[in-house]
């Protein structure tokens, strides 16, 4: 059975940030990931951006305001990944490293 993108992202968050006390299923799709919610910090945002680029081939936006919106929750991340995987977004798709 194919995992939903949201579930894949939850697993990715737990794996990439080595949150060994958190089960992917405990992460609420719409809850804030940073400071409140999971209590992640700005460094985690950088780590997570790297992991998302590796797994989904989608790079963060050149606009940090937009990045703050993208990294708000699993839901916003999933929307972003979906939009760019579908090839619909502006020029922020991953450039081959």
């Amino acid at each position: 059975m194919q995992q939903s993108l949201e579930d894949q992202l939850k697993h990715l968050i737990v794996d990439a940030l080595a949150l060994e006390d958190v089960e992917p299923g405990e992460i609420q799709t719409e809850a804030p990931l940073f400071v409140e919610g999971l209590g992640l910090d700005s460094i985690d945002a950088l780590e997570l951006a790297l992991a998302i680029q590796e797994k989904f081939g989608v790079a963060t936006s050149p606009d940090d305001e937009r990045n703050r919106e993208i990294f708000f929750s699993v839901k916003t991340l999933a929307e972003f990944v979906r939009a760019h995987q579908a090839g619909g977004g502006p020029a922020v798709a991953a450039e081959p490293a």
Partner: peptide, 12 residues
């Protein structure tokens, strides 16, 4: 003036 944080934003 700004302080970019993410890699793409810094490069931009």
């Amino acid at each position: 003036r700004e302080t970019p944080h993410h890699a793409e934003a810094i490069a931009h």
